[in-house]
Deep mutational scan, measured.
Amino acid sequence: VSVELPAPSSWKKLFYPNKVGSVKKTEVVFVAPTGEEISNRKQLEQYLKSHPGNPAIAEFDWTTSG
């Protein structure tokens, strides 16, 4: 189950709350306009370098507050 949070234009930000008793931590995933899922800052940096014209990296908020 995921919750969609505010994201930069043409992107989606999905929040996957951890299940009770789960060892997996809460996860935030950005979905690029191409449909590619980005789950960490390093991936995001690589994606933005190879896909010019996207929002600046500073516009991506990895917190769950939206």
Rank of each mutant, 00 (worst) to 15 (best):
V1W: 12
V1Y: 12
V1F: 11
S2K: 09
S2I: 14
S2P: 15
S2A: 14
S2H: 11
S2N: 08
V3Q: 08
V3L: 10
V3D: 06
V3T: 08
V3W: 09
E4P: 07
E4D: 08
E4H: 08
E4F: 09
L5H: 05
L5G: 07
L5I: 05
L5E: 05
P6G: 07
P6Y: 08
P6S: 09
A7C: 06
P8S: 04
P8V: 04
P8E: 05
P8I: 04
S9Q: 15
S9D: 14
S9T: 13
S9W: 10
S10R: 14
S10I: 05
S10M: 13
S10C: 13
W11K: 02
W11L: 01
K12W: 04
K12T: 09
K13M: 03
K13P: 02
K13D: 03
K13I: 04
K13N: 01
K13F: 03
K13A: 03
L14A: 04
L14D: 02
L14P: 01
F15C: 10
F15S: 06
F15M: 10
F15K: 05
F15V: 15
Y16P: 02
P17G: 07
P17W: 14
N18T: 10
N18P: 10
K19W: 13
K19V: 13
K19C: 11
K19P: 13
V20I: 12
V20A: 12
G21N: 11
G21C: 10
G21Y: 03
G21I: 07
G21V: 06
G21E: 09
G21T: 09
S22R: 03
S22L: 08
S22Q: 09
S22C: 10
S22T: 11
V23T: 14
V23N: 15
V23G: 15
K24F: 14
K24S: 15
K24G: 15
K24I: 15
K24N: 15
K24L: 15
K24V: 15
T26W: 15
T26G: 15
T26R: 12
E27W: 15
E27T: 14
E27D: 10
E27L: 14
V28E: 01
V28G: 01
V28A: 04
V28D: 00
V28Q: 01
V28R: 00
V29P: 00
V29C: 06
F30T: 00
F30V: 00
F30Y: 07
F30I: 01
F30C: 02
F30L: 04
F30D: 00
F30R: 00
V31Q: 05
V31T: 04
V31E: 03
V31G: 01
A32W: 01
A32L: 01
A32R: 00
A32I: 01
P33Q: 03
P33T: 02
P33C: 03
T34K: 01
T34E: 03
T34S: 07
T34H: 03
T34C: 04
G35F: 02
G35N: 03
E36L: 04
E36C: 04
E36S: 03
E37L: 15
E37D: 05
E37I: 15
I38L: 08
I38M: 05
I38D: 00
S39Q: 10
S39V: 14
S39C: 12
S39W: 15
S39I: 13
S39D: 09
S39M: 11
N40F: 04
R41H: 11
R41D: 09
R41S: 10
R41Y: 11
R41L: 12
R41V: 13
R41T: 09
R41P: 12
K42V: 12
K42R: 12
K42H: 12
K42L: 13
K42F: 12
Q43V: 07
Q43K: 06
Q43M: 13
Q43T: 09
L44M: 07
L44W: 01
E45C: 08
E45K: 12
E45G: 07
Q46L: 13
Q46H: 10
Q46M: 11
Q46A: 12
Y47P: 00
Y47K: 00
Y47F: 06
Y47W: 05
Y47G: 00
L48V: 03
L48P: 00
K49C: 08
K49N: 14
K49E: 14
S50A: 13
S50E: 13
S50T: 14
S50H: 09
S50R: 10
H51P: 00
H51C: 03
H51A: 02
P52T: 07
P52I: 05
G53N: 10
G53V: 04
G53Y: 04
G53F: 06
N54M: 08
N54F: 03
N54D: 03
P55C: 03
P55E: 03
A56C: 07
A56P: 15
I57G: 05
I57Q: 07
I57S: 07
I57F: 13
A58H: 14
A58W: 15
A58S: 14
A58C: 10
E59D: 10
E59M: 08
F60I: 01
F60L: 02
F60M: 01
F60R: 01
F60G: 01
D61G: 04
D61L: 05
D61A: 05
D61R: 04
W62Q: 01
W62M: 02
W62P: 01
T63D: 08
T63C: 09
T63K: 07
T63S: 14
T63V: 05
T64R: 08
T64F: 10
T64W: 12
T64Y: 12
T64I: 12
T64P: 12
T64H: 13
T64V: 14
T64K: 07
S65K: 12
S65L: 10
S65T: 13
S65M: 13
S65V: 11
G66P: 12
G66F: 10
G66C: 13
G66K: 08
